[in-house]
Every structure is written in structure tokens, then in C-alpha cells.
Design a protein around this nucleic acid. Structure first.
Lengths: 355, 355
DNA sequence: TTGTAAGCGTTATCAT
DNA sequence: ATGATAACGCTTACAA
């Protein structure tokens, strides 16, 4: 490994000057800089990150911790995030360190790693409504950024989130415009903040139209195809079945499509489906049959901002300048259409036809 | 952050003595050691890993790189490995660094990280028959250990693997003892080393009994339920269908079970199924209906040995002392049974009944 | 048994 | 514009 001293010796300079030249300090002679850079390249010089870290006091390592049984079973989004984040962090010469927590104690690895004090910060994903990890890290005073946000208001930590309430509103608006009055929701697990936010937006949007969705037409579960199918089958068997489904993920929508097929219902002829699409490469909503109408917010798009926020946070930027909420795009495709004639009856509070 | 110097000052000792006391050097006075340890604990001392790394020349970071489109789509085993490995590495105060490679160039992240020279080594999973990553790392002289092994012989790198050929033999032996003569194989993707090894063992075991499995009864694909179902349906539609399936994973077996159900075949009455079980917590073979007969080798069991091998490798232990092949357990449950009377006819080379 | 001092490779603070 | 020198926190000869 060639080091600063080697370059310095080769050029008859001091290590300090070489360091300055390489790090773009303005005071160094332009000629010197050229020579230094040339030699550095020739000698295939790479700064020793460990040494840099020792002096800077930073490790350049950011932790991301998998909730072991939960996240794995749920969906491939954790991987998607890890992949995007590691690639973005690499641009800053930083690394993503992986750990996993067990179901018994989600906070344990954070405690351990904070005690070791070897990481610069953490990136959290999929916060729950009352997230223990956030509680702990806040109390410990350790830097972290969140993909999503735990409450419904403005938290006191950096985050990047999509406007989940708005997304539910957009979906309901589209369906309402198409004449749908009985809209069911297949949401994610109730303890997740995003699910709570969407649920709130969903009910608010319905209420604004004078509609309701009785509790048996709102389901919460893992983002899985099986869940979508089972829940849809059950709801469609109702005396006053929904004419449209709002799904928390494309995977759930796939399940609803199966249920529709089994029931002999055409989508969007008899039934409309709209899903939220994280745009995970493995599940392309466009390739669905019929192509899915979605609210689309690629999960991958969060990785750049989250990484930048992390770096800025470590650089001392104020938290309120590191909070972002973006909106999802509504993309209308073939899985939504006008409600079938005679199906515009709305639900009353108990879920039977109102008039 | 309390440091060595602080403890030293508090006790009127030198940092050197404190360091020795904490690191268990034999020469320090036992009383001194006690006092040092007490104070260290009281002051909540944690050695600065960065500083330790600078002097030791090691980073304490091990890389694991996801093959982005491939591994994610394939199965949850990458997560399983990451989880186990990160936990084992933590025992050595080491960390697992995550990166992802793209389909275009699997070796790219290795090149980048090797150039940065910030990792101590790599752990590779699921090697292919001719693995480019292994080629590169070997050429680069970078320490790595492999879960699995690329060739069929003894490689020149540390690895931990199960005896895939033996596992296929065990399965065939069991089925043969039950009278099965037409055994199909639903293997993993052909380019993976483990699949090649199992295929070889499968054919060898059949040949030893004077049996064959014509190519249309041997399939290769991702370890997915859909694949299992489709492949089994196709094979079962044959004029001389297999009476038993050997599946590369429990997920594939789940697909075969669906196919059997659709075809109205009872397992194990009409059809026997045996699978290899990596014992990933999310997919419990015992809970299958009927409970699956498997060759079982928990993937998690590889994590401890792999971590130890990595550490030993870095400590200079010879490679030939770091190569392990373990055998899988054969666990007979309800999915295998005696062949149905009149179904013992064997295949000839073309896959029609021999006699 | 303990202390002193050098060193790991880099950056930052003084001088010059 | 460049060079000495100290510093980051720890380990390890070498001295005492």
C-alpha cells in the first residue's frame, strides 16, 4: 500500500503538502498539484480510510438493522433500500453495516452498537406508529434518519417520506370520479406508520364525499399476495360487495386479481383495483394483466435523499432542514374503470346498502 | 468518550499498563488488573475501534455482496446468511458491510472495494460453477471464504459446504428402497455449483441402481413455488410419469404439492416428494401438509464456521485447514411412501417404460 | 511489573 | 506555497 509519505518522498515534498494537493486546498501551487496527482495516480495511491477516520473522528459507517422475522417475511423492500443506500453511501466513501434484530427485542442491536460507538449513525426503515428504535436513538442522542415518519405530524428527526394520506386521497378521488361508492381498503399491518397515515387519509377522503367504509371492508396485514386474495374473496362474498379495492401494494393487488378471476369478475369491468407501487424491480405493475392503476413512488428514490440527509446531519445541518415529504404520482392504467351500472349504492355505517 | 488515558490518569498508571491489563497480558499485577477493570467498567470505557484498527492494520469489516437481481428474486437465503453472519462477526467485534452488484458486472463492487482496501475480506455465497468473483479475488490475493464451493473437487480457498452429491444419493436411496424407479429432479438453476453437484450425485445414484432419469424429467430453475408447480404438472402429464420428485428446496416442493392436489394425487399415496431443506425459519417443512421428508442442513449452521474460518484465515491459518464439508440429515416424514403397485416400471433412455 | 516512546497514516496548526 | 510538528487513540518494543 502506497502512502502519503511515499509520494512525498518521491517528489521531495512533505506529506502535508501532498495531502493538501490531493484534497484540493486552494493554497497549493497548481504545478505542484498536477505533479502530486500524477504521481499519486501512478503509484495507485488510496488514502487509508482508517487513518482518515481516526483523525476525523468519524467511522464512515452507517448502520441499518433488519427486523429479523418481520421485515424478511414482509416484502423485498428492505433489500431494495439496502441496495440503493449502499450505492449512494459509496459516493461519499461510506459503508453500510448490516445487523439484524430478533423479535424479542428490536432495540437490542441499537443498544449494542451505540455502546460500541463505532457507527456514525443509523438509517431506519418502516417505522411503526410508536417506534421504540426512534425512542431509543433520540434518547441516546445518536444521529439517525428515517425512511418514513412515526407520527402524523412533523417529527424532530430527519426523514424522507411520501405523503401517505394524500396518496389515499388521490386514489379515492379517482375512484369516486369513476362513480365508485363502495371502496374497500387492503392496507398494510396496522402498526406501521404508513398504514396508519393511509387509513386516516382514506377515511377522510371518503368522509369528504359523504361515504364510509365499514370496518369489515378495511383489512390490515402483511404485504402478501395470499392476504390480498383471501381478504378480497371474503369481501366480495358480501351481500353488498365493494366495487373497488385500494391496495397497499402491488403484491396485494395481485391477490385481488386472483380473487376476481376466481369469482369470474372482470377487472376493470366489474371491479376496479388501485394499488400503491413502490416500484420494486421484481414486481412490475405495468406487466400485470390488466396493467395496474397505481400511485407510484419508487422506493429507490428515497435512497439518495436519505443518504444526503445522513451526511448533512453529521455535518451539523439543522434537523428542520432535513425533513422531506414528497407526493406519489397517480398513474391510471387498465385496472380502474367506471362503476358498473346499478352498483353505485353506498354503504351505511353497518355496511349494508344505504338507500 | 472515555479513553485509555483517562483511566490511566484516574489510577496514576500509564496508558500502556491499562491497555495491557484490559487485553489480558500475563505480566500485569493481578491487583492492578482488577483495579483497571473496575475503573474501566465504572467509566464505561469502550476501546476506540478505529484506533485499534489503525495500529493493527485491520479494519474489522467483512464484505458481503448481493447479486442484485439474482439473489433477491431467488430466495430469502441471502438474508438468512447475512443475519447469521453479522451476529457471529459481532462476537469478534467485527462488522458485516453490505453492497450490491448489478447484473451487468458481478465483479465490479469487488474491484471497487478491493481498490479501496478498506475491508479485511469477503464472504461469498451461492457460487456458480465457474464463479467470476472467486477468480477475481483469488487473482487479487484478497482473503475470502465461500459458502459452498465452485468446482466438484477441493478448491484452493476456505469454504464451508454441504455434501450435495451425497445428499442426492441419500434421497435416491430412500426412494429406491421404497420401490420407486421413476424419480424426477427439480433442481436449482444449472449454473449454481450446488445444483451441478446434486445433479451429478443424482445421476450417479440412479446409475448405481441401473436407473436413469431422461432429461425431460430433470428441470433447472429458481427455487420458487411456481416453478415447482409448473414443472411437476408437465412431468405428471407424461405417459410414464415420475412416481417421486426430488426437489432442491421446500418451496419447490410446495409447488409440487399444489400440482399433486390439482391432479388429484395423494402424497405419499400416489406420489412421493423429498426436498432439501435449508431450514429457513419462514418456511418450515414440518408444517407442510403432509409433513415433508427432507434432507436437512440449516443454512444458519454455516454462519459460525464461515465466520471462524474468516478470522482464522486473517490470522494466517493454512487454507487446507479451513475447508469443511458436512453432510445433511435425512429426515423421513409423511411425503414419502412405498410406490403404488404397478408403478415400478423403470424409464429407458428416452423416458418410456423399459420392459 | 510498570513506564517511556515510537508508530499506525492522515489531517490540522502553526511557522516560514 | 510549503514544511515541521502535533494530534487522533491505541498497541508494542524497549527500558527501567
Amino acid at each position: 500500500m502506497t502512502k502519503l509519505k511515499d509520494i512525498a518522498a518521491r517528489l521531495g515534498l512533505s506529506p502535508a503538502t501532498v495531502s493538501r494537493a490531493l484534497n484540493g486546498f486552494p493554497e497549493v501551487n497548481e504545478q505542484t498539484r498536477q505533479r502530486v496527482q500524477a504521481v499519486a495516480r501512478a503509484m495507485n495511491y488510496r488514502p487509508n480510510q482508517i487513518a482518515q477516520k481516526l483523525v476525523s473522528g468519524r467511522s464512515g459507517m452507517i448502520g441499518m438493522i433488519l427486523r429479523s422475522p418481520v421485515d424478511v417475511a414482509t416484502d423485498p423492500s428492505f433489500f431494495e433500500m439496502m441496495t440503493g443506500l449502499s450505492s449512494r453511501l459509496a459516493d461519499y466513501d461510506m459503508d453500510l453495516v448490516f445487523h439484524a434484530s430478533s423479535a424479542e427485542d428490536e432495540v437490542a442491536p441499537y443498544r449494542r452498537l451505540v455502546a460500541k460507538a463505532t457507527l456514525d449513525g443509523f438509517i431506519l426503515n418502516a417505522p411503526t406508529v410508536d417506534d421504540q428504535r426512534i425512542r431509543f436513538l433520540t434518547a441516546a442522542g445518536v444521529p439517525f434518519v428515517v425512511h418514513g415518519r412515526a407520527g402524523t405530524g412533523m417529527p424532530d428527526y430527519p426523514f424522507f417520506d411520501i405523503d401517505n394520506a394524500a396518496l389515499a386521497r388521490q386514489s379515492v378521488a379517482l375512484l369516486h370520479d369513476l362513480g365508485h361508492r363502495r371502496i374497500a381498503m387492503l392496507n398494510g399491518p396496522a402498526n406501521y406508520a404508513y398504514a396508519a397515515q393511509r387509513l386516516k387519509g382514506f377515511h377522510a377522503a371518503l368522509a369528504a364525499q359523504g361515504l364510509t367504509a365499514p370496518s369489515r371492508f378495511v383489512a390490515h396485514d402483511r404485504l402478501a399476495e395470499d392476504y390480498g386474495q383471501r381478504a378480497a374473496e371474503k369481501m366480495l362474498a358480501d351481500a353488498a360487495p365493494p366495487t373497488a379495492f385500494l391496495c397497499a401494494s402491488t403484491l396485494i393487488a395481485a391477490g385481488v386479481l386472483r380473487a376476481a378471476r376466481k369469482a369470474g369478475l372482470s377487472v376493470a369491468g366489474d371491479l376496479s383495483i388501485i394499488a400503491h407501487d413502490d416500484a420494486i424491480p421484481q414486481f412490475r405493475a405495468v406487466n400485470f394483466e390488466p396493467a395496474l392503476t397505481v400511485t407510484r413512488a419508487p422506493m429507490r428514490d428515497a435512497c439518495g435523499p436519505l443518504t444526503d440527509k445522513m451526511v448533512h446531519l453529521l455535518d451539523g445541518v439543522a434537523i428542520q432542514d432535513l425533513q422531506t415529504i414528497v407526493s406519489a404520482d397517480l398513474i391510471v392504467r387498465q385496472s380502474t374503470g367506471p362503476v358498473r351500472a346499478g352498483q353505485q349504492g353506498r354503504w351505511n355505517e353497518t355496511g349494508v346498502l344505504a338507500d
